[in-house]
């Protein structure tokens, strides 16, 4: 499976990429929403992992953009923010798979299976 990771934190992005590759996935990493938008859009068979607090365009906007694609990919939102801040960003969005940081490999495996 192809997994896109939109995460600005270098450590989180790198380690997440490593574990995803370990799990046998193809990994594409983007440090910002803008970089994701500039690349070839994900397809319906892909998974996009989006961090909510991104520099520039926020993660919530990325989710909206992805959902409006003709063939939207599966989406997993990750965040280390408070529940209040998360709710604020995701207001009006439903069927969101959310994982709060810190993340671990088992959680990632199970949400990728569920997404």
């Amino acid at each position: 499976m192809r997994v896109h990771v939109v995460e600005d934190d270098v450590g989180v992005s790198d380690s997440l990429g490593l574990i995803l590759m370990n799990l046998g996935h193809e990994v594409l990493s983007y440090p910002s929403a803008e970089k994701l938008f500039a690349a070839a859009p994900p397809t319906a068979s892909d998974v996009v992992i989006v961090d909510l607090s991104l520099p520039g365009i926020p993660g919530g906007q990325v989710v909206r953009w992805l959902q409006r694609l003709a063939a939207p990919p599966r989406i997993v939102v990750i965040s280390g923010q408070s529940q209040g801040a998360i709710d604020h960003q995701l207001r009006g969005l439903d069927r969101i798979v959310l994982v709060r940081k810190p993340l671990d490999a088992d959680t990632i495996t199970s949400v990728l299976a569920a997404a």
Binding site: S15, L16, L18, I19, G80, Q81, A85, P102, L103
Partner: peptide, 20 residues
Amino acid sequence: AAIAHELNQPLTALMLYLQA
């Protein structure tokens, strides 16, 4: 809350590196 978020980043990375 902001500090918790900031701590979550390295803890996440640390956990994932070790689990990998």
